[in-house]
Nucleic acid binder design. Structure first.
Length: 250
DNA sequence: CGAATTTGACCAGCGC
DNA sequence: GCGCTGGTCAAATTCG
């Protein structure tokens, strides 16, 4: 398998970073024990970066939702009303609705873009499209691409009031990480994976397929790649400042 | 050529 | 029972 070339500069030339193609610079006084300890610290750092990244994306998402709520408060109020109407009109008995599992996301899009695509990090398979009574724009139905293992569905429809707003309704919770999270997790655990080990032998040791998947995913979104690269680089530098003194003491 | 999407048909729930 | 509506299926079509 040939890994997709990674286009992000993550300071991989930094001597502190070890890449697959790098030959480790083993000093005379570097013992296998020391390398192992450094490897462990690097792994901890990457895990910390990933945790930080996840919390940051959650935070940014929350801020953006708050911002949208403020900016489109009349729309939102109307949509809130619609929400009760729509959920009430679902054919399943209301008491059976996994209320906590239903989540609405309002996404600003280009009004001229007629595709009902909401980028949320997961992969979806479209299985239907309908024009509903109360909205001239069609509603698209998606299942998680991991179905039937993952039961999550989503409906995407343009707001009846504003062409620039798309409403995504999620039903259920993913019982797996998004492809991007999987790949990032694989990167964090890749350092001590022996080539003979498969990811399904140990949930913590995902193989190169996921790394390639992440590369493919990121390469499709140039804005994301640059922003992610900047964020990770910044966090790595922070962590270096934090960990480097203690490592030099070793 | 396989995967993903489109779209008409079909099904089930609800109100009358 | 019938019609309306939202949701799903699956064959046909498109795309990479």
């Amino acid at each position: 398998m040939v890994a997709t070339p990674f286009t992000i500069d993550l300071n991989l030339n930094d001597p502190f970073c070890i890449t697959d193609h790098d030959t480790p610079q083993v000093d005379d006084d570097d013992t296998v024990y020391n390398l192992s300890r450094k490897n462990k610290k690097l792994k901890e750092m990457l895990t910390a970066v990933l945790d930080e990244y996840n919390s940051l994306t959650t935070h940014v998402k929350k801020l953006m939702e708050d911002k949208e709520e403020r900016e489109s408060s009349p729309i939102k109020r109307k949509l809130d009303h619609d929400e009760t109407v729509e959920q009430g009109s679902w054919k399943r008995p209301k008491e059976d609705l996994p209320v906590s599992g239903i989540k609405r996301v309002y996404v600003k899009v280009d009004p001229s873009d007629k595709s009902l695509v909401v980028k949320d990090g997961y992969q979806w398979r479209k299985y239907g499209q309908k024009v509903t009574r109360d909205n001239p724009s069609p509603r698209a139905y998606y299942k998680c691409s991991f179905a039937p293992i993952c039961p999550v569905k989503k409906k995407v429809q343009r707001s009846v009031d504003d062409d620039g707003v798309v409403v995504a309704t999620y039903e259920g919770e993913h019982n797996h990480r998004s492809p991007m999270q999987e790949a990032a997790y694989a990167l964090a655990n890749k350092r001590d994976i022996s080539t003979s080990e498969r990811w399904f032998d140990s949930p913590k040791q995902l193989d190169e397929v996921l790394v390639e998947q992440m590369a493919n995913y990121l390469c499709k979104d140039p804005n994301f790649t640059s922003e992610l690269a900047a964020a990770i680089t910044s966090r790595l530098q922070d962590l270096r400042r934090k960990f480097l003194p203690s490592m030099l003491m070793d």
